[in-house]
Amino acid sequence: MPVPRSPRRLMGVAVVAAVAVLVPAVARATDAAQPPPPAASAPADAGVEPWVWPVAPFRLTRPYVAPAHAYGPGHRGIDLAPAGSPDVQAPAAGVVAFSGSVAGRGIVTIDHGGGLVTTLEPVVSELEPGTTVERGETVGVTDLGGHADAGTVHFGVRLDGEYINPMLLLGGVPRAVLLPCC
């Protein structure tokens, strides 16, 4: 005699089947979407220096928020409030691809090769496109304007045209310390 199939039992079987199919597919898609290992984790003998923060010391005022899709809302970079000098440094060696004003705010874009491009704004700079810059070299000073809070620098990174979290190249997310609440 066949076992009676209740709607609840069928729903449970459907959920288990869906999870069995979707979890491996999501894991494969997530693995494929991950950027290659950051330059910061390259072996020292590879000739690649770790990236440096474009302003230091600083306070992180707005983190990276990945958009759900290419045109979705998000924050495609991090915002840093300088706690000292207004100087802005190149996070890694590269070539200035753009230095000028866009929509009333100063922008410096550096091509680091290997598909990595950084954008710093609002930054006033006298560098010309084509200028070679070294890691840690001053590329300009913090200005006002742009979409970041006044006095902060927006630091965005693209890998092969897609925005990635800049902190991946700077050693990841800073270590958090949990304190008791009471």
Rank of each mutant, 00 (worst) to 15 (best):
M1L: 10
M1V: 13
V3Q: 14
P4M: 04
R8Y: 05
R8W: 15
M11H: 03
V15G: 09
V16F: 13
A17E: 07
A20N: 05
A20K: 08
L22F: 07
P24E: 10
A25N: 02
A25Q: 04
V26P: 05
A27P: 00
D31P: 03
D31K: 10
Q34S: 15
P35D: 09
P37K: 11
S41Q: 15
S41M: 13
A42N: 14
A44C: 05
D45Y: 12
G47Y: 06
E49R: 12
P50F: 05
V52F: 08
W53Y: 12
P54T: 09
A56G: 13
L60E: 09
P63Q: 02
Y64E: 02
A66D: 09
H69S: 04
Y71L: 14
G72F: 11
H75P: 00
A81R: 13
P82E: 00
G84M: 02
G84E: 06
D87M: 09
Q89L: 15
A90L: 06
G94N: 04
A97P: 05
F98T: 02
F98E: 09
S99F: 07
A103C: 13
R105N: 13
I107W: 14
V108F: 09
V108Q: 07
I110A: 10
G113L: 12
G115C: 07
V117P: 05
T118F: 10
T119S: 15
L120A: 12
L127Y: 07
L127T: 11
E128M: 15
P129M: 02
T131K: 09
T132C: 01
T132I: 04
E134A: 14
E134I: 02
E134M: 08
R135E: 01
G136E: 03
E137G: 02
E137W: 01
V141F: 01
V141R: 12
T142P: 00
D143K: 03
L144F: 05
G145P: 00
H154R: 05
R158K: 03
L159D: 02
D160S: 01
G161P: 00
E162P: 00
E162L: 01
L169P: 01
V173N: 06
V173C: 01
A176L: 11
C181M: 12
C182I: 07
